[in-house]
Nucleic acid binder design. Structure first.
Lengths: 205, 205
DNA sequence: GCCTTGACCGACCGGTCGGTCGGGCTTAGG
DNA sequence: CCTAAGCCCGACCGACCGGTCGGTCAAGGC
């Protein structure tokens, strides 16, 4: 009973300590001694569960990317129209990022420190999310539901730009909840995607 | 004569080497030995011109922030309306960032590694640019020239989000020139700032 | 010709880093 | 009770780091 979170277990404690320290100081500036100290374990325990310091960093990335990818697939599977899908994707990404701000901060800052193999893996996943968003905008523009003021790429870079920077300025105790921020951002992006308002075509009554 | 750029001089050579290495590998992962090797000087030369490795990093920041601040003041001094000012600011920031992509990459990634004093200085400058943009949007919304779909803060975070991420995806040999990217981004932001088109109020005939 | 100045050199230093390894403690099977 | 296996401990290692410092050398005033 009360098995909610009695104790995270050694491995998870190490990951948690690493994430918070990496977010505070950066990956290179954090020593493994600091990590094990905060986790309350000895160095041997870390190297029992992880191959290297880089492996530990990769674990952080893997968790976050997995979460984002599963969110993407879940939303795409619902088969909503472009506008509602864009809104849902933004909401999911913003809330996920806000809820894991420390991980996201590390993610944005230290991607280059990953080894070649892991870096390629993370980049590929990242890119698939990116491409899905581009394709979504393109589809909406082709069907006329979206306007074509900006290219799908620019819209996507913009949306992901804010989201990636979110860990920098988001404060959990701020005045706006993540879902409010998400709604506002979605409003902004969708406003920029409003079709040109030339009243010809079919217009309203 | 022909004094255009005969040789950058020792100090500048060190800065250039440092910027490129910091951009490639990150600040911590770059040793001063690597810097002096690429610059083609000895270690003593570096410590003759700079107090410390951090001082060298600060030099990079100072140059970039100075350029951005002077651009901001120049544009604000022209006294154009909100829309044209927003467009000019975005154009300036995008082009500046694209032209100094390596510096901007370092800037975005390593700000936390600066010492307290220098960090405060850089943050203050950064923030003043930020605040000027927020104020600009707020003014435009108050006068009715801009719509109020999104808060000034969100618009600003969005604009600076793309710009800060630009060094990640911008390629000098890409198909779009920086000024084209800037125009497209400005179009996007201004489209999101279009006033609501509710036909009541004064409307057309 | 001599002396001062400052840019630059590079061997060297104390300290810290990521990573290792022999061993202890606990649990389960026999 | 003994054994085996997995988890974990922490003293320790060699490499390398940022930074120092005594010295070299060319330029220019006197």
């Amino acid at each position: 009973m009360s098995s909610a979170r009695p104790e995270p277990g050694t491995r998870q404690r190490i990951v948690n300590a690493a994430v918070s320290l990496f977010a505070e100081q950066g990956f290179d500036a954090t020593s493994v001694n600091q990590v094990v100290a905060r986790a309350g374990v000895a160095k041997g325990a870390l190297y029992h569960h992880f191959e290297s310091k880089d492996d530990l960093l990769y674990e952080v990335y893997r968790e976050l990317v997995d979460r984002q990818l599963s969110g993407l697939h879940r939303i795409l599977a619902e088969g909503m129209g472009p506008a509602r899908t864009v809104r849902a994707l933004i909401a999911d990404l913003v809330c996920t990022t806000a809820a894991a701000a420390a991980e996201a901060k590390v993610f944005a800052r230290e991607s280059h420190r990953l080894g070649d193999v892991n870096q390629a893996r993370v980049r590929a996943a990242r890119r698939s999310i990116h491409d899905a968003f581009i394709e979504l905008v393109r589809t909406g523009q082709a069907s006329g539901e979206f306007g074509s003021i900006a290219s799908p790429e620019m819209v996507t870079f913009t949306a992901f730009g804010v989201i990636n920077e979110l860990p920098v300025w988001y404060r959990p105790d701020g005045e706006k909840r993540p879902d409010e921020l998400a709604a506002e951002l979605a409003d902004l992006i969708l406003a920029a995607l409003k079709p040109a308002l030339d009243p010809e075509r079919e217009a309203s009554p």
